[in-house]
């Protein structure tokens, strides 16, 4: 029996001014599964994540989340319905402390009174030692972990991860992979992952979608993803 779909994108078209970026994109993320979105630079992966989050308006098409049509909802309404977003470039608040960055994630979950739960420091032990530091003073890898922790604290049902391994040293990539694996094993969160690092995506994802020039050109379960398809669409 197929799992229910948490996120359903149906023939979505998105424009930057007059240039047509996303063309009839359809995609689904089932409950508690990981879908990976792959494609070369400029294929529209980040644009798609931004449209899912509501940062870019849809010209036509539909975005459904947990059975509700959210196509015209603002980002903050989507976040409060259970979307967590870790953008490319991480977007840590540079002059806020690590703790304040985390509390902002907590506020989205409507239970800030309990304080930052300890589980998050089991996943990201490095953050516990840096609570008073300013977000902008952290290294790229630390910021990535902070962004992931901040998104997790909002108790999302769907995590949108935009290239979590980009520009990060290998040891931290391993840690981040461990964390995502653990999130996946807890079976509470679905993930839509944008990733260029093929092996990383391969190990984590249940489903794949490949984008080219704003359209989905191939998709299926990760087990079926053949070397031939991967090579044709992803090789440089």
């Amino acid at each position: 029996m197929p799992a229910t779909d948490l996120l359903t994108i149906d023939r979505l078209n998105v424009y930057y001014a007059e240039s047509h970026i996303l063309r009839d994109v359809s995609l689904t993320v089932p409950e508690h599964k990981v879908a990976c979105l792959m494609g070369r630079n400029g294929a529209g992966k980040t644009t798609l994540l931004k449209s899912v989050m509501g940062l870019l308006p849809a010209r036509s098409g539909q975005v459904q989340f947990a059975g509700e049509n959210i196509t015209t909802r603002c980002p903050d309404e989507r976040a409060r319905r259970g979307m967590g977003y870790v953008p490319q470039g991480r977007e840590i608040f540079p002059t806020l402390t690590v703790q304040e960055n985390l509390v902002l994630g907590l506020l989205a979950a409507k239970q800030p009174k309990n304080g930052i739960p300890d589980e998050i420091f089991h996943l990201f032990p490095i953050l516990k030692t840096m609570l008073k530091r300013r977000g902008g003073d952290l290294s790229g890898g630390q910021q990535q972990q902070l962004a992931l922790a901040r998104a997790m604290l909002s108790h999302p049902r769907l995590l949108l991860l935009d290239e979590p391994t980009e520009g990060i040293q290998p040891s931290i990539i391993d840690e981040i992979e461990d964390v995502i694996t653990r999130i996946k094993e807890q079976k509470a969160v679905s993930i839509l992952l944008v990733e260029q690092y093929l092996e990383f995506a391969w190990r984590l994802a249940d489903f794949y979608y490949i984008m080219e020039k704003g359209s989905i050109v191939a998709h299926g379960t990760t087990e079926e993803l053949s070397e031939e398809v991967a090579h044709r669409h992803l090789a440089i």
């Binding site: 980002p75 902002l104 506020l107 909002s154």
Partner: peptide, 9 residues
Amino acid sequence: DMSACLGVP
């Protein structure tokens, strides 16, 4: 934008 993505109205 990032504040909005964290549910800040």
